[in-house]
Design a protein around this nucleic acid. Structure first.
Lengths: 359, 359
DNA sequence: CCAGACTGTTCAAGCGTTTTAGCAAAATTC
DNA sequence: GAATTTTGCTAAAACGCTTGAACAGTCTGG
């Protein structure tokens, strides 16, 4: 029963070069002939048109012919007729390159698929020419629309050619409001959630190590921190906000300054920083969360879930961004032109913050 | 100069819903009419056919008409005529989900693009039905071929429908040799390189913490370790090989056993394990690389490059796998059917192994 | 038993290209 | 100056499918 049936009559055939023997792909006409009907009828059967009146017996015959011949519709021909394909383009400046941003692809893919669309992706690495070519290609393939995405949340220009298609910005937005539909993560809410994890655990004096790199995330995450403090009735103290380069080294390097602050908890701009900080804290003989509680941001699985102790953080909703982008493109979600739609960054609590430990 | 020109005559037009005003995409015929020639001529000009004899003046006129109308060829129509599209399908069981495996997409994309092909991707999460649909879709779109890839190196079955296309296995292979072209990482060479990093640094007694999970990587990486030792004239000692679950917790958990061994260096099955081991070692007051040298495997950037100290490791060549897969598919690289082509896993030396420190 | 309404199916035009064969005019040859 | 070649361009078929109009039959109701 070793899937032999597929290749009937190949007794002791020599190793037929992998590519099966479909010299001439089966067409509608051939199916029609075998079933003894017109191509129109076959088409009607295949597409299950509701207004089509087809005798059961005929339908049966056609179905059999299709199976027997192993017929596959030619999507290109279909598209030619209909004018638009079942493709959604995804041009990215580096989602494939970046570990977690890949989830944008994943989310977009799943959602697109759900609605019968396939993803056509192009990774441009920020190369403008490549980008232009990629968009042109997508246009030529008559994509339903294009998702223009960036690997980190930022403002972006909109290539002229992009305007020729229906498009949505994902994880980025146009500086001139009203210029384009867009979906981005809600940095402020995320920052607020992160801070609240600490607040809920009883901490009152909380440091924030922000990034040195200017970006919507820098402002948003800080704003969220302020919002959370305000809600808790704690005055914002600018001295508790440090800045460092947003990677492990930056976090590690901020250790000393942080320790000067006399805080019981710290919220880091991202998980990588937190990872570096773990090392710094440990070197100072401090333990997490007993001596100091830590939360990160991004929820970079490979890191956050496996640090010792596992890091409480807030998720950058890449998957959702991709999915929402598709829904927006297809007009399933509301898509205000005035401003970007914000997707929540849900908190992910792990063990770097004690259940309840007033300082 | 704010990219206004594109939409001429829109004085104070109301917010025209994003989608530009291309009611009827420009066709070849329209270009032909404007240029005062036949569609055949326009086609000839566009495709720069070498045998085509076109007067410079005509060519000029056509080119202008194209520019003026903003004509874009309809790729679907083209494909209909030619029979195959400029698509290469990539079906993956989880490359988008997995951080670094995303590089397979990236490599495939770049290489495909280089040859004028675009990537059509489908992430199936291992779902067989989805996979079948994905392949069917690709077949319907007349892809040039399909790359069938897995997120970790493993043997795989070949879906029947896949056989209808030209295909190459990427990061996986068929258990029945000779059944399919495939490209995989050279685990043994990688393991050997990893071990050699340690050997070169003067270590003689080297432990290997292998994974508990059966996989080609498990066997290959062990084999490489043995090979390296043999080359160095060091007898293989099975007692120096431990096993643990291949993540941070596994590495951490292996610390005690490792310390019993009295080795000066350890080679971990992967970077995540090494990361956990770092913690375990540190807790025992040991420092890396002074007290014990460590090398990992995979070169998971986010981790390896940013541990303290940065981890020496060996790269899993995902990008290359994707690229090689495409080349193989297009017949640019030799593609033996007997066995999978192996791609080297290059060593990446960082600071977790001292330059030269005989135990 | 006939007009009208269904039912089941086919005709044929059209989607936007590519491409081969062929035609008229211009250039070249002898 | 006729014969031949070359040049520049076009007609039209083909690619595989969809779809609205049209056409025979078969039913129904009066």
């Amino acid at each position: 029963m070793i899937s032999q049936e597929k290749n009937p009559g190949n007794a002791a055939a020599p190793v037929v070069h992998a590519r099966a023997g479909r010299a001439h792909p089966v067409t509608l006409r051939e199916v029609a002939e075998l079933a003894g009907v017109s191509t129109a009828t076959v088409s009607l059967v295949i597409n299950k048109k509701k207004n089509a009146r087809i005798a059961d017996e005929t339908r049966q015959r056609v179905t059999e012919a299709i199976a027997q011949l192993g017929y596959r519709p030619n999507a290109m021909a279909k598209t030619l007729v209909s004018g638009t394909s079942k493709f959604i383009g995804l041009v990215a400046d580096g989602v494939a390159t970046t570990p977690f941003a890949g989830q944008i692809i994943h989310g977009a893919q799943d959602e697109a698929w759900k609605h019968g669309y396939a993803l056509l992706i192009a990774n441009t690495e920020g190369n403008q020419d490549l980008e232009k070519d990629a968009i042109a290609m997508m246009l030529e393939y008559k994509v339903r629309g294009i998702l223009y995405s960036t690997w980190f949340h930022r403002p972006t220009g909109i290539p002229d050619t992009l305007r020729e298609a229906d498009f949505v910005l994902v994880n980025c937005f146009s500086p001139d409001a009203g210029a384009a539909r867009a979906v981005v993560p809600d940095e402020a809410q995320g920052g607020q959630s992160a801070t609240q994890i600490l607040l809920r655990s009883g901490h009152r004096r909380i440091a924030f190590i922000n990034t040195t790199t200017p970006a919507p995330a820098k402002d948003g995450r800080l704003q969220g921190y302020k919002d959370a403090l305000e809600d808790a009735g704690i005055p914002f103290d600018p001295d508790l906000v440090l800045e460092a380069y947003p990677d492990q080294e930056g976090g590690y390097g901020a250790t000393d300054d942080l320790l000067q602050l006399g805080v019981s908890a710290v919220y880091c701009y991202n998980d990588r920083m937190a990872m570096g900080l773990y090392d710094g804290l440990r070197e100072n003989g401090l333990s997490i969360p007993e001596d100091i509680a830590v939360v990160g941001f991004d929820n970079q699985e490979v890191i956050a879930a496996h640090l010792r102790p596992p890091l409480s953080t807030v998720s950058l909703p890449h998957y959702e961004l991709g999915a929402a982008g598709v829904r927006m493109l297809l007009g399933l979600d509301a898509a205000p032109l005035e401003s970007a739609v914000k997707i929540a960054c849900p908190a992910v609590e792990r063990d770097s913050v004690a259940a309840h430990s007033p300082a």
